[in-house]
């Protein structure tokens, strides 16, 4: 068992030595073969200088570019191509997979669910995160509170699913309830519910898990943004007689709008890719299916690479607007540098 970890560490050493040898060696070769010192003629020296300067960045970039193109760029095109092929990718079938998707009840259910997730999870996570950030920044135990709210960020989605499955646990009405939610329900005189099969509430109960995880993220980012608001601005508003609620809505929110958008879009991306929670909680049954889980089912349970690719492409299309927006923002920042 331990030998396995030693093998992993050995792999690390091998990889690091290989990477180090590549970077050091390629640089050494470059300097050796394109010399510009006393040994070469002035003309060659200038030419070699220029060549070296234009080659070296690509030596630095090569391994990363290799990985990125093989594992991320090429697959994008390949997945689009596969989505136009049949189940074992041997025959071109045009848009049939997309037509199938539009008419498939499960796919439409996933689309609807993803849409609900998109509406609810980013909004509530950001709202909770903002409220906690504002409250915590003015209380002496705020940092402890923030640590505790932030903690779910460290836990895997699967671990979080176990935690919440336990909260939603269901026993028959004649037994003592060991799940908190059913204990509350029976305590208030209702019959215990099998929450995870309870359509349509089960989807919302799954969303609670992601909100629980993502709120910490929103809180940390927003808290930093709030601290960036100049104290004089807030003080001036106080002197003008604004109360805390007015300050919150008329000064704080407008000042951190761009951060709010960033938080919102980042959580949106996470939501679009959500897989683990649905996979672990319901497996997509009981009308909780989402695109990522549906894709997994078609890809592995049914082995249909065409339809799996089609669903992946749909996810990519959903992410696309945010991707373009991000790129434009990044370009604008570079322009000012």
């Amino acid at each position: 068992m331990i030998g396995q970890v030693l093998n992993a560490i050995l792999a690390v050493v091998v990889a690091l030595v290989a990477a180090g040898a590549y970077f050091w060696g390629s640089n050494w070769l470059l300097d050796k073969f394109l010399r510009s010192d006393a040994g070469v003629s002035p003309g060659a020296s200038v030419r070699n200088d220029r060549l070296r300067t234009s080659i070296r960045p690509w030596l630095f970039l090569a391994p990363a570019l290799l990985f990125l193109s093989l594992y991320l760029v090429y697959p994008v095109f390949e997945t689009v191509r596969l989505s136009l092929m049949n189940n074992n990718s041997t025959r071109f079938i045009g848009l049939s997979n997309y037509l199938w998707a539009i008419n498939d009840a499960n796919f439409r259910q996933s689309l609807l669910n993803n849409f609900l997730w998109l509406l609810i999870v980013p909004a509530l996570s950001t709202a909770f995160g903002l409220v906690i950030a504002v409250l915590a920044d003015r209380l002496w135990w705020g940092n402890i509170a923030k640590s505790l709210v932030f903690m779910p960020m460290a836990i895997s989605f699967v671990g979080a699913s176990v935690i919440w499955r336990f909260v939603y646990a269901y026993r028959g009405p004649d037994q003592a309830q060991i799940g908190v939610l059913n204990a509350l329900a029976t305590g208030m005189g209702f019959a215990p519910q099998n929450w995870l099969t309870n359509i349509p509430w089960n989807s919302f109960l799954l969303m609670v898990i992601l909100i629980w995880i993502q709120t910490g993220f929103a809180m940390v980012i927003l808290s930093a943004a709030l601290r960036g608001i100049p104290e004089e601005t807030l003080e001036a508003a106080r002197i003008d007689g604004a109360n805390e609620v007015q300050i919150f809505f008329t000064i704080m929110i407008p000042q951190i709008t761009s951060t709010l958008i960033v938080v919102w879009t980042t959580i949106t991306i996470t939501v679009l890719k959500v897989f683990d929670i649905v996979f672990a909680m319901t497996g997509g049954q009981f009308q909780t299916e989402v695109l990522a889980n549906l894709m997994y089912s078609w890809m592995f349970r049914s082995g249909d690479f065409g339809r799996g690719s089609t669903i992946a492409v749909v996810i990519l299309i959903a992410v696309m607007p945010i991707m373009i927006w991000n790129i434009r923002n990044a370009n604008r920042e570079q322009g000012t540098r």
Partner: peptide
């Protein structure tokens, strides 16, 4: 880019 694009 969603990981899902790379899997297949």
């Amino acid at each position: 880019v969603p990981l899902q694009m790379s899997l297949i």
